[in-house]
């Protein structure tokens, strides 16, 4: 698809603006909420006590 420079600028401007739309505090609150949601999801799962972590991970 061929684009003129002007058309490309018109496309890219919203992409750059999108990165600036969310206030930092809101973004941090949302990110912390994600960490909490992950923690809650993991807390619901039972594991045998003998299960060791995959340290020295090997495929």
């Amino acid at each position: 698809m061929k684009l003129t420079r002007r058309q490309l600028v018109a496309v890219l401007a919203p992409a750059a603006a999108l990165a600036q739309t969310q206030p930092a505090e809101d973004a941090l609150a949302a990110a912390k909420a994600k960490v909490k949601a992950t923690s809650d999801a993991l807390a619901k799962l039972d594991l045998p006590m003998s299960t060791e972590p995959a340290f020295q991970f090997r495929a």
Binding site: A19, Q20, Q22, P23, A24, A27, L28, A30, A31, K32, K34, V35
Partner: peptide, 9 residues
Amino acid sequence: PVQIAGLKA
């Protein structure tokens, strides 16, 4: 900003 927040969190 979302990435900044994600790394901080």
